[in-house]
Amino acid sequence: MATFEFHDKLYKKFHKFFDDAEEKRRWHPVKDVPWDKINKDVPDDFALCAETFLGVESFLPDYIRGGLTVVRASTLAQRWFAANWGYEELKHSMALTEWLLRSGKRTEEQMFDFHSSLMEEEWQVPFNTARQMTIYGTFQEMATFVIYLRHEKLAKEFGDGALATCYRLNARDECAHAKFYEDVVKCYLDEDREATIADIAFVAANFQMPGVGIVPDYDKRVEVMREEGKMDRDFFLKKVYFPTIKHWGITRQELVSVAAARRRAARANKPTTAETPLA
């Protein structure tokens, strides 16, 4: 159970997040995208990328259910954030669907089939505690943010102002989500630095993006996205991992020593802090 101080800190952070969202970040996925700026001649790979983003975003029912289940016993701010998060993520799917249809890259029947095939799989919550899921959320939202930015740039280069706007609006939301999660992790660090660092090392070691294994042909799709977005293996480290841990005031060396201790303990079959659900 969270302490009053922890609850209070998060409550204030959520209010700040929510006020900013209401005042500066609310948008409409149909009305706020300049659909007349679609370039129907963009390469087909652009459609594949948009469809893949849509595929990942489409597991929203699982993300909301899983996320809320994990945070429901944590704080009010985390529960409210999860609900608000779902609303904002929904718009990402709506905007991408509109672009795929209006650009003529997909028909309504194809979209129906795609959505139907997606729901044959189910996303499973990758971590068991609110603290671990918040850490996961930070990395995942930050990664999604920078990937969307890359694709916004590409869409601009190919003269598709509508797709660029979809990516920009999605990216702005993802960044706001990542920052909220990042701030919550800082609060966790203030509460219990050692256990939170153990969780960060654990999540980092077991991290994978949410579409893996559930979006059809995910590996092939990601190959195209990496190629299009010019993302190499260092991309995650440079744009997500290093800046995030720096913001948390943690060094790579601290995380490595925790990971090494965990590895040794695992070999000796001893449970470690991060494997024991605490938060």
């Binding site: 980092a204 070691a205 991290f207 293996r233 260092d234 995650f236 480290l237 991992y241 790579r252 060396q253 995380l255 490595v256 020593s257 990971a259 090494a260 590895r263």
Partner: peptide, 11 residues
């Protein structure tokens, strides 16, 4: 993966 490689470097 990249993060495991960081562990190697850290060691």
């Amino acid at each position: 993966d990249s993060l495991a490689m960081l562990e190697v470097v850290g060691e």
